[in-house]
Design a protein around this nucleic acid. Structure first.
Lengths: 137, 137, 137, 137
DNA sequence: GTGGTCTAGACCACC
DNA sequence: GTGGTCTAGACCACG
């Protein structure tokens, strides 16, 4: 199976973290269904042009979060996630980002109205770009 | 002068970065006026319970951004910020946070309407809390 | 012949080891008598929903331990176990598990009395459940 | 600070796991107090005669369990653990080992009385050895 | 083939 | 000095 991951080499964000974030999104949003067999560590490392140990770390971290299940000698699979849990997971991820933005705005003494106005601009721009690759960092 | 900085020790965010972010906000938003003499490095380090080298880095970074000015043997002052520059600066900071949140939501396949709904919830909550310390990470 | 083996997929314990442990118990305890013809590798693999190579390994390991005997073209049989040998074998297996538990307790600085108390609780619980399938991992 | 860890090179148990188990015991049992600064990764690796990456893994796993807290550029510390949580943690570790032993005995068709008798023998032996190094695997 | 462990060393960021 | 990331490759265990 082919997994589309965008790597930003010039970013300060660690490689393993970029991969984790994107893979987590795809799993939690259901784009990669439960039970799916992911690429082998070596294969994925090859396609991402990084070392196997980096992919290993990604798989292990996500397994610790309960999103993956790995069987020695067999491969790594997407774990079963309760639907309710999935929804909560998604919402938490987005909520945190929204709250961080609101905190920043408040500490800069933006009013509620100013902030909402800015957000509407962002929404307009982002959802117009959607599909052209608007999800990379 | 007393500068209210909130340190979150358990956060993964580097210490110097937490301090920089908050100090930058206070300067750019005008909460600390032009020409204000900041605490000495040692004094500030003492009140933050961190090492002097960390405060030194904060002052230096903000000086490089043009927000502070250091006079040998005298101390560190808040520099003059052009009004136009100030607005642009503020907006950029908030904009980046909003865009990050929108990117996260889009990658999780949220619709524009769902996202806006979540944001309204956050706004309601955050602006209600305002003044009770809603700006720490 | 039907052999009741409980597979725990989510366990970290290797598949072949889970099977070996349970099969060994049944042989040593006499639940599967001497001379019994075990299922063919393919058949057993089918009923366990695992690969034939795994069952092959189990049979081979137990044959090396002297618990099984393979006759070319005929099948795999439970070997003769000396009564004295049987007792020693059983006791060793249990002894090792008890010692491991005691070591863990000692390293956590449990007193002899506390440990014994915990064990009595476990005994009460386990021997009450017995027969309802209390032997799977 | 000096941490006494016993490495069994000939064991099948992974190195990192041996270290984790022993360090976890010392933390949970209170032998290493809250807030204690552990040896640096490199120093510990040197004294254990293993690679730094292995110690790194140990520290990270225990941090994920909430037993350690690490601060970049500063070091790795024993985290604050609630007393109630600590007790539960200890009991769980021992309980699991006891249950595994009981399960083994039951599957070998030991009676409750036989098993208890064996355990008393183990207890006598182990608590006599205590202090002579009875906690290694 | 698969994942799991471990090494020796590099380079960076933080304090 | 500290921890954090990443590499290239080795060897083992599992299916």
């Amino acid at each position: 199976m082919w997994i589309p991951i965008q790597i930003n080499e010039s970013s300060a964000e660690p490689l393993y973290h970029q991969i984790e974030t994107q893979l987590r999104s795809m799993i939690v949003s259901g784009q990669i269904g439960e039970g799916t067999l992911l690429p082998s560590i070596r294969e994925f490392a090859g396609s991402l042009n990084c070392s196997a140990i980096t992919v290993r770390r990604v798989y292990q971290d996500l397994e610790n979060e309960g999103l993956l299940r790995t069987k020695q000698g067999t491969g790594t699979f997407v774990a079963k996630v309760e639907e309710s849990q999935r929804g909560a997971f998604k919402q938490t991820l987005v909520m945190e980002a929204l709250e961080a933005a609101a905190d920043a705005a408040i500490s800069l003494q933006y009013s509620k109205e100013e902030l909402l106005d800015l957000f509407m601009q962002v929404l307009g721009r982002k959802y117009e770009d959607k599909g052209k690759g608007g999800d990379q960092k």
